[in-house]
């Protein structure tokens, strides 16, 4: 554990809590991609199956359980509790175009051809693209509420901090996880365009982020 990793995890947690509270308090999931949230729930489910097979630390276990619970609670809010506010027609990204290649790649490129390893690899690949339905939705509607952009900002910051974490681990421990690092870099790139808009539009005070 290093400072980048810890801050990264905290940003990840903050992002998830921001989204959950936004939906809970406003009783609306307008502008939120339910598909991205289902993908994230799938990411956590397939990655954290090791909760049943190996114990790493209390921190690790608690965080995994919290992420799982919040991910499913968010999906519940979007698809059941506040379903009437869900913009399903704007959330039109075809997730099968992500799931099929990601599933195929996880069978081809993994560390071991074992069920848990393939599922872990699948979760890593899937996480790197899971935000695309959300970004697609913002591009399609041309705007996002500022609270949604804060959510995306913390999610992107979490990714950037994980990159710093890997640089740190490489130099201090000689650690290099090719699958996680390559996917992590790809994932972070997806946020770059968003980061630019966030700093130039949202932080300059306009309530919503509108695309040029």
């Amino acid at each position: 554990m290093n400072i980048f990793r810890l801050l990264g995890d905290m940003c990840h947690l903050v992002a998830i809590i921001i989204l959950f509270l936004k939906i809970w308090r406003s009783k609306s999931c307008a502008g939120i991609s339910g598909k991205s949230q289902v993908l994230f729930a799938l990411v956590f489910t397939t990655r954290y199956l090791d909760l049943f097979t190996s114990f790493i630390s209390v921190y690790n276990t608690v965080m995994k359980v919290v992420f799982l619970v919040l991910a499913y609670a968010t999906v519940y809010l979007i698809y059941l509790r506040f379903r009437s506010t869900y913009n399903s027609e704007s959330d039109s990204f075809r997730v099968e175009f992500l799931l099929v290649p990601v599933a195929g790649l996880s069978f081809l490129e993994n560390y071991a051809f074992a069920p848990l390893e393939i599922l872990w690899t699948f979760s890593i690949y899937l996480e790197s693209v899971a935000i695309l339905p959300q970004l697609f939705m913002i591009t399609k509607t041309g705007e996002a509420e500022s609270i949604t952009t804060h959510y995306l900002f913390f999610l992107g910051l979490y990714r950037a901090l994980y990159l710093a974490n890997w640089v740190w681990r490489y130099h201090t421990e000689g650690f290099f996880d090719q699958i996680a690092v390559v996917s992590g870099v790809v994932q972070t790139i997806f946020y770059c365009d968003f980061f630019y808009l966030y700093f130039t539009k949202v932080l300059r005070g306009s309530g919503k982020m509108t695309l040029p």
């Binding site: 990793r5 995890d9 790493i56 995994k64 074992a114 996880d177």
Partner: peptide
């Protein structure tokens, strides 16, 4: 050999 290094990350 299953590489488990990254599995300690979230």
């Amino acid at each position: 050999q299953v590489k488990v290094d990254a599995h300690d990350e979230l």
